[in-house]
C-alpha cells in the first residue's frame, strides 16, 4: 500500500525561509537550504517550497533555491508561488522540481490546470487551495497568499480542478495556518471525500494528536509541517514513530 506522506513545507520570501501566522506576519527563519537538508536527513517523504509573496511581486528566487536543493535532497519536491504559465512550470521542473503547486493563476485561468497536466502529466499538477471558513461546511478560496477573496467555493473548486487535470490537492487552512491549534479536520475531510486524488493537509500542526486526527478523521493522504519543524518543536522522525505507534502506514526509514 501507499503510505501516508510526512512533508516538510518551506515558505520562502526572497532568499529566506520565513514563517507566518494565517499566511501573514512573516518572520525570517534562515537559509532554506540548511533547513531542507536537515528535513531530508530527518527522513521527510517530500518537500514543498512555496514562495508566498511571488504572486504579488512577480518572479522570485525560487528557481535558484530549487536548483540548490536538488544537489542535497533526493526525495520529491513540490514547488509553488507565482507560477503563471507552462513556461514557468518547465523552468521549475528543469531546476529539479517534481511537481508544481498553483493557486492564484489557476483561479484566474482554470485552463492552466489542463495545460500543465497535458504537457507534464497530472501527477505534476498540484492544485493549491488556500481556504477560509465562511459557514459550517463552507469554505472560500483565497488567492495571493490569503489576501484576496475569490468568491469560489473550495469544495466545488476541488472537484473542478480534478476534472481539469489536477493530480493532487494541497489544502491550506488559512484559519489554522501558524496557530498550532490543529488542522481544519472538516475542511480536509470534505476535500478528501470530494475527489479521488491525494490530498495534502497543511496548516495548524501543534502536537502529535493533530497528526493522527487529520489522517484518521480528516482522511488526509499526506500531511505538511512547517513551523513545528523550523522551530525544532518536532522532527520528522518523531512524527513518523508517533504515527507508526498509532497503526498508521508510514514509510519505514
Amino acid at each position: 500500500m501507499t503510505s501516508v506522506r510526512l512533508i516538510a513545507r518551506l515558505d520562502i520570501k526572497g532568499p529566506n525561509l520565513i514563517k507566518g501566522v494565517h499566511l501573514e506576519g512573516l518572520r525570517v527563519m534562515g537559509d532554506p537550504q540548511e533547513h531542507a537538508r536537515r528535513y531530508y536527513e530527518q527522513g521527510a517523504d517530500e518537500l514543498i517550497y512555496m514562495d508566498i509573496v511571488a504572486s504579488l511581486y512577480g518572479r522570485s528566487k525560487l528557481t535558484e533555491i530549487v536548483r540548490r536543493a536538488a544537489h542535497d535532497v533526493f526525495v520529491p519536491m513540490t514547488v509553488g508561488g507565482g507560477i503563471r504559465n507552462v513556461d514557468d512550470v518547465r523552468d521549475l521542473l528543469r531546476a529539479g522540481a517534481d511537481k508544481v503547486a498553483i493557486n492564484t493563476a489557476v483561479v484566474r485561468r482554470p485552463e492552466l490546470i489542463t495545460e500543465v497536466a497535458r504537457r507534464f502529466g497530472s501527477q505534476c499538477m498540484v492544485l493549491s487551495i488556500e481556504a477560509k471558513r465562511q459557514a459550517p461546511g463552507r469554505w472560500e478560496v483565497y488567492t495571493d497568499c490569503g489576501r484576496e477573496r475569490s468568491g469560489v467555493d473550495a469544495l466545488e473548486w476541488a472537484r473542478r480542478g480534478v476534472d481539469l487535470g489536477a493530480g493532487e490537492i494541497l489544502v491550506t487552512s488559512i484559519d489554522r495556518e501558524g496557530t498550532r491549534s490543529g488542522f481544519d479536520i472538516e475542511l480536509t475531510r470534505a476535500v478528501a471525500t470530494a475527489v479521488r486524488v491525494p490530498v495534502i493537509a497543511s496548516g495548524g500542526y501543534g502536537e502529535p494528536k493533530h497528526l493522527l486526527e487529520v489522517i484518521q478523521d480528516g482522511a488526509a493522504d499526506a500531511v505538511a509541517f512547517a513551523d513545528a519543524l523550523h522551530y525544532g518543536r518536532a522532527a520528522i522522525g518523531e512524527l513518523r514513530e508517533h504515527a507508526q505507534r498509532a497503526g498508521i502506514n508510514v514509510r519505514m526509514t
Binding site: 500500500m1 501507499t2 503510505s3 506522506r5 517523504d45 502529466g121 497530472s122 501527477q123 493530480g167 493532487e168 479521488r196 486524488v197 491525494p198 493522504d221 499526506a222 514509510r251 519505514m252
Partner: peptide, 10 residues
C-alpha cells in the same frame, strides 16, 4: 483506487 499510483510503497 487512485490512478496514477503516486507515493511511497514497500
Amino acid at each position: 483506487q487512485k490512478i496514477p499510483h503516486v507515493g511511497w510503497s514497500a
